[in-house]
């Protein structure tokens, strides 16, 4: 049993004000973290993933099945997968085959060799079930900038993945970087041109992410108080927060744990429980530096 008690910081800002929080209202989406092992080693990775990283471990099918079943009992509408690189883990095909019998699935992938190698298997399991969608990380619309961080050739591979997936009937989307000073219209156009060049739909969804900083980063962001949450957000808006309608499953210290959302797995205060139903009762404090991104930009890893 997880019995971690949150620190005082969970409830009160350093200025002595009451922290803003979210009271979860549903489990619409369950995220499953496939571990921090990745074939790439990007220094900007918000998960701190890399070829040798073992901070979070890859779960086995037998381990996640109980949680998938529990989520289904709680009325979950979607299963989503992130990592690390999900297609590196042994059981990913089995897990997707199982989960997609019940709900649509979304997998966040870098679209390079691990995915390309298992494309045929993926196509095999995606026939009769709920759709399996894939979101490929394409940081920038030009190969040079993308490959500078991800390594030469990985842009091209991601384009191959997008094109092959699209041709095989998979729903695909792109996750890109969002710079604070960018000309968003121009960036969007560059992506649309790239899609059109490669015969991809021009309206292919693009999800732009701000920089979330690596795990454990100490950064100064404004503290979100209860006042902030009630004054600048209403009930309907608060329900849009990831921690209000979703949870993430991680395997840490070889144990499956439920954390509040996809962005806070580096802080033990956000480890809520080892069961999904118990985690739904826990209020989520807005103390993490990434909570500010959700507060200010409405950051969401979901696609809707």
């Amino acid at each position: 049993m997880i019995t971690h008690k949150p620190s005082e910081d969970w409830f009160i800002t350093p200025n002595g004000e009451a922290r803003g929080y979210i009271q979860p209202h549903a489990l619409d989406e369950l995220w499953i973290h496939t571990g921090t092992r990745c074939n790439l080693a990007c220094d900007f990775c918000l998960e701190g993933s890399g070829p040798d990283d073992k901070r979070l471990q890859p779960p086995k099918f037998d381990e996640v099945k109980a949680h998938i079943d529990e989520a289904l009992n709680l009325g979950v509408k979607q299963f989503s997968f992130t990592g690390g690189e999900p297609f590196l883990i042994k059981d990913i095909i089995t897990i997707l085959a199982y989960a997609s019998q019940f709900c649509p699935c979304l997998v966040l992938t870098n679209g390079t060799d691990p995915l390309l190698k298992r494309l045929a298997k993926l196509a095999e399991i995606s026939t009769d079930n709920h759709p399996i969608s894939l979101r490929i990380s394409l940081d920038y619309a030009d190969a040079g900038t993308h490959d500078l961080a991800r390594g030469t050739g990985n842009f091209a591979k991601a384009i191959v993945a997008l094109k092959k997936l699209h041709q095989q009937g998979f729903k695909v989307s792109v996750a890109r970087h969002m710079a604070i000073d960018e000309d968003s219209a121009q960036v969007e156009k560059a992506f649309r041109d790239l899609f059109s060049l490669n015969g991809l739909p021009e309206d292919l969804p693009i999800i732009a992410f701000p920089d979330f900083l690596p795990p454990g980063a100490i950064t100064e962001v404004p503290h979100i108080t209860e006042h902030c949450m009630t004054h600048y957000h209403n009930e309907a808006q608060r329900r849009q927060f990831m921690c209000s309608n979703s949870k993430m499953l991680i395997k840490k210290n070889n144990q499956l744990q439920v954390v509040a959302c996809t962005l806070v797995d580096d802080d033990d205060d956000y480890v809520l429980s080892d069961s999904l139903s118990a985690s739904l009762d826990k209020r989520i404090s807005m103390k993490h530096h990434r909570c500010y991104s959700c507060f200010a930009y409405g950051a969401s890893c979901s696609e809707s």
């Binding site: 900007f44 500078l148 961080a149 710079a179 000073d181 701000p210 920089d211």
Partner: peptide
């Protein structure tokens, strides 16, 4: 070289 020097 880090691609995100402007983003950090």
């Amino acid at each position: 070289v880090s691609c995100c020097s402007t983003d950090t």
